[in-house]
Design a protein around this nucleic acid. Structure first.
Lengths: 143, 143
DNA sequence: ATGCGAATTAGACACAGTCCAGGCCGCCCC
DNA sequence: GGGGCGGCCTGGACTGTGTCTAATTCGCAT
């Protein structure tokens, strides 16, 4: 994957390549996402960005994340009813979600094959497919 | 499926079979879910229940839906960041979600086969698997 | 410097969902 | 039948995520 080793300079290029005006804040937000191989919520991004560079507003974080999603720079992952996670990895892959800890990890999609899905209704187009495997630690969970 | 034709009397039995005390409100809520082959949000359930029988509180609707989920009577479907949908069909099946209309429809899971998923880490147990195919109308959507 | 559109900001707002303290209801036992 | 008890329901306050808006600031080109 090409999303490790993103200096802030490189990130500006990446943003431009996606037709996004690379502002200060947007670069910081992109950096927060790309510099760690984790799935962050908007609030986490806000916290990370503000601990380094003094101030970025909540509105900007939300606006920017939505912008990135629209421009297909990142992907939303909807697994937790409370918050949306953002995933800098846009290649085909799936997710494993620990319902106890809330931890979300990637599953490589390269060798996953799915058969037997019915045809889509006419005039309908696939936007994407999510697969989420919900797990818990075998012992700790009481019925 | 055995979730059509649920009179309120039958529903009381169903609830008891799941170790749920069949109160008035719970039966009405179960009825709202089982009597239509649709996926409802908590707010929709609240509206349906209250248009028939005068008053059921919001807290009760939420408590009851969560209780039903815990008792495996219904299932949560998390596809829309804004609200949770509840699905009375607990057999293995998947979902198609229209990102434009918000409409959620079932995909029978009987003949779906998935291969190539990696093994789970040791000591971890599958809680369930969700597959969501996000679609949109092919023509109407502008880039 | 000046002007202009785009981006950012603070704060108010909207909304789903939860919590809490009080009251009600059904049920059991005497 | 009456008294007590535990579970259920209720309104309302509260929380947290995300959005909106009006005003300010930024960056850039002239």
């Amino acid at each position: 994957m090409d999303y490790l080793y993103h200096s802030r300079d490189n990130l500006a290029e990446v943003l431009r390549a996606h037709a996004i005006n690379p502002t200060h804040q947007r670069i910081e937000i992109a950096h927060a996402l790309y510099s760690r191989a984790e799935h962050l919520s908007a609030d986490q991004v806000l916290a990370i960005v503000n601990q380094r560079h003094p101030e970025t507003s909540r509105a900007t974080v939300y606006n920017t994340l939505n912008l990135f999603v629209r421009k297909k720079l990142i992907r939303e992952v909807i697994v937790d009813p409370n918050r949306v996670f953002y995933d800098p990895n846009t290649s085909a892959h799936y997710h494993m979600y620990d319902v106890e800890t809330g931890r979300l990890t990637d599953i490589d999609g390269a060798e996953v094959r799915i058969e037997g899905l019915p045809d889509l209704p006419a005039g309908v187009v696939t936007e994407g497919m999510d697969i989420i495997i919900r797990v818990r630690r075998g012992d700790g969970g009481n019925k």
